[in-house]
Design a protein around this nucleic acid. Sequence first.
DNA 1: AATGAATGAGCCTTCATTCAT
DNA 2: AATGAATGAAGGCTCATTCAT
Lengths: 204, 204, 204, 204
Amino acid sequence: MIKKPLGRPTDPQARAARRQQIMNGARKCFVQKGFHASGMAMISAEAGVSIANIYQYFETKNDLITALVEEELSNDLAVIQALAEAENFSAGIKIAISRLAEGSDVPAMVQLRLEVLAESFRDPAVAEVVRKGEALTIKALAEILTKAKARGEFTGDFIPEEAAALILAFSDGMLSRLPIGPKPMQELVEPAFSFIAKALGLKQ
Amino acid sequence: MIKKPLGRPTDPQARAARRQQIMNGARKCFVQKGFHASGMAMISAEAGVSIANIYQYFETKNDLITALVEEELSNDLAVIQALAEAENFSAGIKIAISRLAEGSDVPAMVQLRLEVLAESFRDPAVAEVVRKGEALTIKALAEILTKAKARGEFTGDFIPEEAAALILAFSDGMLSRLPIGPKPMQELVEPAFSFIAKALGLKQ
Amino acid sequence: MIKKPLGRPTDPQARAARRQQIMNGARKCFVQKGFHASGMAMISAEAGVSIANIYQYFETKNDLITALVEEELSNDLAVIQALAEAENFSAGIKIAISRLAEGSDVPAMVQLRLEVLAESFRDPAVAEVVRKGEALTIKALAEILTKAKARGEFTGDFIPEEAAALILAFSDGMLSRLPIGPKPMQELVEPAFSFIAKALGLKQ
Amino acid sequence: MIKKPLGRPTDPQARAARRQQIMNGARKCFVQKGFHASGMAMISAEAGVSIANIYQYFETKNDLITALVEEELSNDLAVIQALAEAENFSAGIKIAISRLAEGSDVPAMVQLRLEVLAESFRDPAVAEVVRKGEALTIKALAEILTKAKARGEFTGDFIPEEAAALILAFSDGMLSRLPIGPKPMQELVEPAFSFIAKALGLKQ
DNA sequence: AATGAATGAGCCTTCATTCAT
DNA sequence: AATGAATGAAGGCTCATTCAT
């Protein structure tokens, strides 16, 4: 016998949709003003929802932030995982880069990334979430490196986990300098790739 | 005849000291809570100064932030310039690293660095200040690289300005992951140096 | 099919009541301290409402002032219009005077009137509101004068609009001297009426 | 033997000049913003004096206000007294009116007048000052009326003190409507004079 | 589920004033 | 006499959050 819910049946799909709607509005605000300068009023306006309604999906503003951080991290992970399907490491990196460069809202993502890192210094809860997400990302990238290494794509030797961490750090650093660099990011893609390639001893 | 100014004369030294005192208090707050979550009340308490007094040294809270950003950038530049006095590039990097590692408050500096980068996305005034500071830093590092290159310390070839930008980005990325990395920073110093060394073709 | 609005429905009556409650509290404060020396804290205390709640009914303190000015002007207009129902001009004036004299809070009204006039010098928005209100009042009084004139209540000749403006100015002047006059207002009612009567050539 | 002051000799003239300088700056501010919206900072800037210096001439801001009110009242009295030198009442009124109309800053005076009246409702000290000043003005005007009456310039009968009070009230009322009247003041001078003339039974 | 109404705490800034020079 | 330095209190307004409908 199928369970028959009593009272008003809640529609999980509708709930998820609205939750996403709120998070999308919140992301816009956080990108523009940061976590702590974005008010619930602005978020509710951007999401097209009443303020009070937000509190039925997130207990506090902090929870909303945390949820958004998790979503953001899973996006990052997805990029890395997409990289796994490439034929070789070199091609994978280029796919990832082009995916970033062609993404319509790179600055927004970077802004949010910085916000997340800064927040993880302050809020231990956020730090924990980020730490887990990053661990997954590093692991995924390390596996890719391990396979590529096994395929003999590198001349040099390195510990995959370490190299993964370094690559991601490098990527973070490059992206975070987007708004302040003297040159546009485009011109640094090539040297950046070359930088990594040499560091890892990528063939050709 | 020299005109004698009426009233109480200004003591530039005392003013500078007080200004610094305020900025130090502000830094503590900004490190803990970020720019926008730090209130003037907290800053004044931390600095041991009345709120109203702060406004005799900084017109607005934003001006205080900007001043702090400038100070922070000049500190960064000083680190790089100290690197110029080393015998060779390898030694210089190690000096810089040890200087950072031994610095009593690396996490605070990193936290502030993230805050600054995030803010430069939002406030064009801050972005401009950061841009100028970074240009100076890149230039300084590029000169160091040029000299080291002339001394034949590298096997590979690279454009100094580009390499400088990449190194700084890498450094930023490494530092910014301090609170989230699975390993403590200490363990990544060696691989990070090795990473750069290979990328630039540093001999030995 | 009629769309059913979601969420809690608005109760216009309750809103209007609360709005009035706030305005009443504000009036007390403005009478005692004037517009600019009355703080929102004092207003909220006098109205029995939280400060933040006031801002759900008036966007700014200035809006609250403007709304009060409008209300005040409509009260003035009501007094004049009540005058229209009297048998003749002489009786009407006496009705108006007694209505003022018996009104429990003449000083408050006068104080507010001065505040309004002073403010209309500074804030163009207030000036515009007052101008429109005064135009209506003058028009109403002019009509009354026109009818009385047609009834042959005056020996002299005068342009109704001009006379109306002069009478209102005279009234304003008399009232505004309430707190400084050497004699209580009561003793000046008779001479004031006589003054107007002679000026207009009122019979008997 | 002439008294020889010990210590630093104070220059009463210089003191008076500076005092006036401050009051002039204060007047500008009070006209623009009113008593309570004008800050000491603005006053000091307008007067070209440091804030602290103001406190050597006026104990509090309130004292500064009171002093200005006194000055303002004595100006009013001077206008009335100038009226005494005219050949007859009719000419005197016209002199007074033209003196006002040609005065470069009638609106400023009126604005201040309203401010003073409003303040006299609140501050008993100001009220007392104004009351005394007004008593003098009424007395002066009453004397003028008495003389004119003795010269047979009026047909009607009236008590001079009463008439003086009424005339001044009327004048106040007319002026205070400057910023809100539908017509410019100029066009109301003639009817206003006629109004008074009729009320007092002025011949011709 | 969704919204309007309400609030205490806090925001940045300016106030009138005093003190030291 | 005159000014810079300093401050507690208050300014208008917004905050994240809760409650009633």
